[in-house]
Amino acid sequence: MTSILSVRGLTKHFRGRAGLFREPPPPVRAVDGIDLDVPEGGTLGLVGESGCGKSTTGRLVLRLIEADHGSILFAGEDVRAADAARLRALRRRMQIVFQDPFGSLDPRMTVREILEEPFLIHRIGDAAERGRRVRRLLDAVGLAAHHAARHPHQFSGGQRQRIGLARALALDPALIVADEPVSALDVSVQAQVLNLMKDLQRERRLSMLFISHNLAVVRHMADEVAVMYLGVVVEQAPRETLFAAPLHPYTRALLSAVPDPGGEKRARVVLRGEIPSPSAPPSGCRFRTRCPLAEPRCAETVPALRAVAPGHRVACHLA
């Protein structure tokens, strides 16, 4: 499968400011040299716990924040090299959906104004044409035409996420970066939104970078899955492989930590401690401080992300 988005060596360190009498704090190594490929028409799931850098990765890809190093190729075009005009054109084709649709929708605007805005910014159609497009968008995400006159606060969480999706779809993008799109929703509504996202993806041949901390949701949505820990990708594999035969001890622990209601009881790997600070990651393998299998060499050399089977890569000395 060809990839629509290829990321190589992507790095972002957030630097704190030095005070008058204070040295600058060590940089937060949010994303530290990661490679990712989003398959065309498919979904790459990016999974990890808080602070692992998955959301930063999503924003770097769209250049909502600027990367320090690395390359981002979208449909063959270098995103990092694009000037302002080129970037605007690129952003028509790459859109983002956030976790909290209320925080990303202007409370003073009606749904019609929210959905019309992308067309106005990109000077598409006259008023009548824009009206038609807004109605089509509402229809596509399962909202009624009369919803256009309402404000965001008049909608439930699930409906607001539908509005967020409609806005992302307005300019007919090729890639959607979905950052925890259903994490704020109740399960019955979450299922509605996930089904809608899958339908839209099929109808519009959308590619998706699906970022979530929820393994079950990622399993449902993604074709390929990358697991992040402290700014690096520790394992990447096709969905079935990753969930059936995870190789990295962190992936295994993460999978075993999620209770599966009604499913088989699995042997639990309970990790020691919590995620270390990304401004002072452990030497060698970053997971070693919590790894049940850690050996002395894990503290010395950084394990490379190497292929162990076609499409299955893992960064562990012991895998």
Partner: peptide
């Protein structure tokens, strides 16, 4: 409905059973 609408870790379904509407 709640149980059916949960995505599963052990199986893959094309669609989730969802409960229409809201509380």
């Amino acid at each position: 409905g709640l149980l059916a609408s949960l995505p599963r870790l052990d199986t893959t379904a094309e669609r989730l059973a969802s409960i229409p509407g809201q509380v």
